[in-house]
């Protein structure tokens, strides 16, 4: 009995002190609202565009002479890095909801929000061939402050806006 009491006390301590946010009596809500896109629009939104300004930086990837900088949830800035002293910005690979990529041979794999896509870019004419799209293979994004949102079957969360 004494042990049980101790155990319960221990559990309560963890419950109460584990996370300070849980002291609040209001149910916690996210400070973000999701940016939701319909699947039909979403699938047509992946393209290779002329280079543009980098608004924010994420993960990086190096393959041969190409250097990629992710702009979280927007896509990848592509640099020709042949001359290490003068990397040249050559394209922006737009991929909504993206955070990461990997490359095998000339094929780029991207987490396009809930989908895995395999693409082959042509930097000369800024065209992009999507050779495969595996839909709904990744979960919908969680908000930056850790909340789950329910969306419709054909709706995809591609970004977050901070609520003022």
């Amino acid at each position: 009995m004494k042990n049980l009491t101790r155990f319960l006390l221990f559990v309560s301590l963890i419950l109460f002190y584990g996370c300070p946010q849980q002291h609040d009596f209001d149910p916690p809500v996210s400070n973000y609202e999701p940016v939701v896109v319909q699947r039909s629009d979403f699938e047509n939104s992946t393209e290779l565009l002329p280079p543009r300004t980098i608004a924010a930086s994420g993960k990086i990837y190096l393959k041969d002479d190409y250097l990629f900088i992710n702009e979280p949830n927007e896509g990848f800035h592509v640099f020709n890095n042949e001359d290490l002293s003068n990397p040249e910005k050559i394209a922006f690979l737009k991929a909504l909801g993206s955070k990461d990529l990997a490359i095998k041979n000339g094929t780029i794999y991207i987490n396009n929000a809930t989908d895995l896509i395999a693409v082959r870019p042509n930097y000369n004419d800024l065209s992009l061939q999507v050779s495969k799209r595996i839909i709904n293979t990744f979960p919908q994004q969680i908000s930056p402050d850790g909340f789950y949102f329910d969306v419709g079957e054909n709706e995809i969360i591609v970004n977050w806006n901070l609520i003022d």
Binding site: I60, Y61, D100, A102, I103, N111
Partner: peptide
């Protein structure tokens, strides 16, 4: 294959992509 940073969540090993 190429090389990501240590924060990568994608990696290609041989004929497999792990995420």
């Amino acid at each position: 294959t190429g090389q990501g940073g240590s924060l990568a969540s994608f990696t290609v090993v041989g004929d497999y992509l792990y995420t």
